[in-house]
Amino acid sequence: MMAKKTINKDYFINEYSNYILEEGKKPNNVFQFCKNLKVEEGKFYDYFSSFETLEENIFIAFFENTVTLLSKSDDYINYDAKTKLLSFYFTFFEILTSNRSLVLHLLTADKNKLENLKKLSSLRKNFKKFIDGLNINTPKIPQEKIDELKENSISEIAWLQLLMTLKFWIEDTSPSFEKTDIFIEKSMHASFDLLDLTPLKNIFDFGKFLWKEKINTSI
C-alpha cells in the first residue's frame, strides 16, 4: 500500500523544481501543474499566490537550509562575525552548487534581468536580517548621523556583495568552482579590512583578482 503523500510547501517546491529541471520551463499555469500532480488547485494557493512567489521561496529554502546547517555546529556560536559570515557563504554556495541547474534556470530564464532579480527579493530581506544579527563592528565616527548611516547601510552593502558573488559563481567555469571560493575569501577579507580600517593589502589583493577576472557587478 502506497504511503499517502504529504501536501505542504516543500511538496510543491520539490515538484515545481523537478518540473523545471525536466521540462526546461515553468508549467503553463497553476491548474495544469496541480492537475498533473492530482492535487486540487486550491491546495497550491494555501502556500503560494503564484509561481513567482514559489520561486522566491526556493531561495528562501536554500537560505534556511544554510542557517540550519550552521546552527548544528557547536563551534559556530563562538565564531566572530567574519568567520560566521564566511561559514554562511561557503555553506550557502555549496547548497547552490548542489542545485546549480535549477538556480541557473531561475536566474537566467527571463531576458529582463530585473525580473530575475525579483526572485531574490525575499532572500534579500532574510539575508539582511542575518547580517544585522551578526552585530558587525563598524568604525566609530563622531558625527551621529554619519555613524547611523553606516549602521543602516552595512546590511545593504553585504547584500550587494552577495549579489556580486552570485554573479561570479554563475559565470565561474573553474573545476569545482574553486575560483568562487577564492572570490569569497578575498572579498570577505577586503570588506572587513575596510570596516576595521586596517592595512589595505587585502583590498588591493581583491582588486587585482577582480581586474583579472573582469567581473561585472550586475546580474
Rank of each mutant, 00 (worst) to 15 (best):
I184D: 04
S174I: 06
F168A: 10
A158Y: 08
L200S: 07
E41M: 02
F192H: 05
F93K: 00
E148C: 05
Y19G: 02
L96G: 12
S187R: 05
L104F: 01
I215S: 02
L37T: 10
A109I: 11
T217N: 05
F63N: 09
F192I: 06
L107K: 07
F88T: 10
K84L: 08
D75M: 03
L134Y: 11
T68Y: 09
N126D: 01
N8S: 00
D147W: 07
I58C: 00
S101E: 02
L166C: 10
K140M: 00
I58G: 00
E52L: 00
N36F: 03
K179N: 13
L149T: 01
E171Y: 09
A109Y: 05
A109S: 14
T180A: 06
E23V: 12
I7Q: 00
K111E: 15
N28D: 12
K119Q: 14
R100F: 08
N18E: 15
I95K: 11
G42N: 10
L114N: 13
E171W: 14
I77V: 14
F63G: 06
T66G: 05
K212S: 15
K128N: 07
L70W: 12
E185G: 07
L70I: 15
Q161S: 15
N57C: 04
I146L: 12
N57K: 03
L194I: 05
K140Y: 00
E15Y: 13
I146H: 04
K5I: 15
D46L: 14
L37I: 11
K214V: 06
D193T: 04
G133Y: 03
K9S: 04
D10T: 14
T97I: 02
L102D: 01
S218P: 01
N65F: 04
T83W: 01
S187A: 01
D196C: 12
T165V: 15
T66L: 08
A109N: 15
Y11E: 04
L37D: 13
L163W: 13
I203P: 04
K129T: 01
F192K: 11
S98H: 09
E94H: 15
F209G: 05
L200I: 10
Y16Q: 03
F63H: 00
S73E: 05
I136R: 13
M2P: 03
L21I: 06
W169G: 08
E64Y: 04
K38V: 00
A81F: 00
T53H: 09
K26G: 08
P175R: 02
K43C: 13
L162M: 07
E213K: 04
T180N: 10
F90H: 09
L54T: 12
D181P: 05
S73F: 05
M188K: 08
K9R: 06
L37Q: 11
G24D: 10
A61P: 00
T66R: 07
R100S: 13
T6N: 14
L107I: 14
F183L: 15
F33R: 05
F177D: 11
I131L: 11
K129P: 00
S17Q: 02
K38S: 09
F44P: 04
T53F: 10
N202F: 00
R124E: 10
F48W: 07
V103R: 07
I141L: 04
A109D: 09
K119M: 13
K82Y: 06
S87D: 03
N126G: 01
K5W: 14
